[in-house]
Nucleic acid binder design. Structure first.
Lengths: 205, 205
DNA sequence: TCAAATTAGGACCGACTGGTCCTATGACAG
DNA sequence: CTGTCATAGGACCAGTCGGTCCTAATTTGA
């Protein structure tokens, strides 16, 4: 993959996460990626829409590498991994100082109703994310109560995190996310079988 | 307040919740409210921005009447009221068939970074919402553990609900919201002092 | 009755939208 | 040497954006 292409993708990712997809113009992307002109851009992407799809994919891959990867660490206890993953989400959000929400949540809120193409792709992103959590939960099932519903719990975790990131952005206060993350850990602990010890890097405050 | 004005406000509310603020043009609103032309619109609102602010306020008032009001019902046990409120959010969302998310969450995701005026107003909305939950929690404090942090718990509830609505919209599946709502009720139950009975219309399934 | 507010409707504005097309370089691989 | 691809850059397109201005008919309240 050419250098220029990723350069465009990166510039677009930044702009879209700052102002949304609709409010990011092709000209903005061209400026951001320092291209010579429109034809230069359309040499690499056949439309703004296609650019958006690829940006979304790249954002997910990035998130998979830097966040989701933790869920699969083989040497760490699964539930401990879940706590570490939540910490990672907090850390990722801290990088932008609480500004700039989840790239998935943002696009979802902006386009889920209006643009079916995006909706389907965002749904797929959430599904892949949820499935990672589900397999971790499956792995941890000896430590969990029998009635734990992995599908529901995985959705709850994602919803809480997405909602938390959104509120953090609105309040411009990272401690909102930190508090919700801590509560979320406690909620997960609720599903742990009695007598099973669980320690975490930062849980329960 | 004139009839026309509310007519415009209603049309705009529908359009904005369907396509977002930026993607709703003044001409769309004019068409939706069946006005004669632009000058007719600008007779009532000095700018699109001001229209947006008023729409947000009206959405909150509507939500306050139809949802938040439950939190203040004097004859019902506070924690039971909280469950009823969560049910009401689910019911409200069902009206649009799972499509069309929270008007606050949508605007937040779309404009929190880009438009300070909206950000501040959305922050105020969430704050008023949170404060209603906080006073309910205060009222319920004899039933709750001593270490319950009302500020944090209220934020958690809002974040979970906003995240749930978002995911429901993406998946186009109301059962996502229902599941998260049920889990949220269980999370709240976790804060209740042992030995205190708490029943709900639909809790814990 | 007279004035103010409301309704109606059209012309117009500069800026911007996503997108196409065309020409003319340089670089590099066969 | 030749053709393909990347770079560069400008002209142009039809349509939309938020917003202004102007004229005129109709309604309403004092």
């Amino acid at each position: 993959m050419s250098d220029r292409r990723t350069q465009i993708l990166d510039a677009a990712a930044t702009l879209i996460s700052e102002r949304g997809f609709t409010s990011t113009s092709v000209d903005d992307v061209i400026k951001g990626a320092k291209l010579s002109g429109k034809s230069h851009f359309y040499h690499y992407f056949k439309s703004k829409e296609e650019l958006g799809y690829e940006v979304l994919n790249r954002q997910f891959e990035r998130f998979a590498e830097r966040g989701l990867a933790i869920l699969r660490e083989p040497m760490i206890d699964p539930l401990e991994r879940l706590n570490l993953f939540i910490d990672a989400v907090v850390a990722l959000q801290s990088e932008s100082g609480g500004r700039r929400g989840s790239p998935f949540g943002n696009l979802a809120a902006e386009l889920a109703d209006a643009h079916e193409g995006f909706r389907v792709r965002i749904e797929a992103v959430f599904e892949r994310w949820a499935s990672q959590i589900r397999s971790l939960l499956w792995e941890a099932r000896p430590q969990l109560h029998d009635d734990v519903d992995a599908v529901r719990l995985s959705r709850f975790i994602i919803a809480a995190l997405e909602g938390a990131v959104l509120m953090t952005r609105v309040k411009r206060d990272l401690s909102v996310l930190e508090g919700i993350a801590a509560d979320l850990k406690r909620f997960i602990t609720m599903h742990v079988r009695d007598g099973v010890v669980m320690q975490s890097s930062r849980n329960l405050e």
